[in-house]
Structure formats: structure tokens, C-alpha cells
Design a protein around this nucleic acid. Structure first.
Lengths: 122, 122
DNA sequence: GTAAACATTGGTGTATAGTCCAGGGTCAAG
DNA sequence: CTTGACCCTGGACTATACACCAATGTTTAC
């Protein structure tokens, strides 16, 4: 798959995908079939970009995501380092879940309050 | 309370607090006691800034937070508009919770995988 | 009344996360 | 062998979310 199709599959722009490559989040092959040098992606990259998108929306920076993906895959870290990084991120994620649950409760209370306001006349 | 104490109480910088004011997230009084014009904050601002910090960490932009706070308080929106905005944000938050739970599960699986790797010799 | 410790505005600078070209190369079809 | 659709690099530009001044004013304590 070349960059255009990947962009279509993921809903990201070509520029964003190239940007993610520049900062090391993805590592495509280069033009295995001709002499062109085009980037070639396999299907796993779609999933990887999906995860990046999700993590971003959940408040993780690309730097944090990179750390996470490095720990997830098998490059450059010892198992112990990977374990530590993953455990750390799990803690962050679980704390975010709690915070979001509190936030959701508060918002629902606020919504109920507005309903009451609307019921003033009956 | 003046800006310095508020900064201390919230852990934010004076600059960040002034920035939040510039974009409309907070609206301090101005110098009610002398002729100075200093910003004066009451205790509720601490909570408000805490909420801003939390929402930011959870992936909301300051723009979204502003919308939310406007709907939360009683300014400038009809009850119906506020209800709609709140309901929308609740949906966003609840979806984020689900995504984070999935992410947490995946991370825990990955962590378990690493544990297995470490157990290769015994 | 003056010095320290606070505050003000206004402007510039920074990091992050991209977007948007320009100028060019590549590929498949006709 | 040209046309259109795709790709490349490099650089400039943008929005968000602040940080960091400088020059100046105010408050508090002595």
C-alpha cells in the first residue's frame, strides 16, 4: 500500500503520515518494486495509526505514544525497561479512566440540574 | 486572592492563568479594595482551574473546555442549548472511557506477554 | 519615603502537531 | 512520449498553549 491509500484507510492526511514517520512513529519500507523510492505500508500500519489517533484523543502526546509503541514492540528496550514503561502507562490510563468517570458524573449532575430548571412551570 | 496565591494553590503559572483569562476561561474581578487594578480571584476559581487542568489532561482542547464551562454556568445559552452541549460532552467523555478501558486491556495483555518472555528460563 | 515583593501590559519566543505549497520525479494508459 | 494521477523533498506557514522578558505601577513593611 502506498501513502495515498493509507491516508484514505485511516482518514489521516499524507502530510500527517509523513510527519509521524519523521518523528519515528512509523517506519515504512521504500519502493521494493521499482526504482522510485515510494513509501510502502503493510496493513499493520493502519492499526498502528488507529492506535496513535486514539491515544492522541485521550490526551497522550506523540512523544508519550512513541515511548509506548517502542515498549510495545521489541526494539531497543530490555524486557525490564519495557515492563516498567508499560506499567507506568497503564497507571496513567487507569487514572484517566477514574478522572473521566468523575467528570462524567459531574456532567450528568449538571445536566439533571438543567432539567430541573426546565421543569419550573410544571 | 491575587494571582500569585492562585498560582500557588493550583500549581499553574501566573502566565497560564492570565492566558486562560485572555481566552475567556476565567473572569476575575479587578482591584475592589484600592485603586490598583489587580486581578482578584475567589476560591471557586481554584476548582475551576482544577477542572480545566483535568479536562486538558483528558484530551480536551481549551476551546472545548470553554464551551463546556459556558454550558455549565448560566451565561449566554438557553437551557436547551446548555442541555445539548452537556449531553454531547457526556457522550464524548463516555466514549473516551470506553476507549481508555480497551487501551488499558491491551496494555495489560502486552505486559503479560513481556512477563512470559521473562519466564523463558524458568 | 524607600526597598522588597508583589502586580500590570505588551511583545517576543517556544514546543507541539501538524498544513500547505513549489518544484520536481514516477507510473500506467493511450 | 505525453497526460494524469500519484509520489518525493524541503521549506514556509499555522494554531494551540503557553513561557519569558522589559518597563512600569502598587502594596507592604520598616
Amino acid at each position: 500500500m502506498r501513502i495515498g491509500e493509507l491516508a484514505e484507510q485511516t482518514g489521516m492526511t499524507r502530510d500527517a503520515i509523513r510527519f509521524y514517520e519523521r518523528i519515528g512513529l512509523i517506519r515504512p519500507e521504500r519502493g521494493p518494486e521499482g526504482r522510485h523510492g515510494y513509501r510502502r505500508y503493510d496493513a499493520s500500519t493502519i492499526r498502528r495509526l488507529g492506535l496513535i489517533r486514539q491515544a492522541k484523543a485521550l490526551g497522550f502526546s506523540l512523544g508519550e505514544i512513541q515511548e509506548l509503541l517502542d515498549a510495545w514492540a521489541n526494539h531497543s528496550f530490555s524486557p525490564e525497561q519495557k515492563r516498567a514503561i508499560l506499567a507506568d502507562k497503564i497507571g496513567v490510563v487507569d487514572r484517566k479512566i477514574l478522572e473521566l468517570q468523575e467528570l462524567s458524573s459531574e456532567l450528568k449532575l449538571a445536566l439533571a440540574g438543567i432539567r430541573d430548571e426546565c421543569q419550573q412551570t410544571g
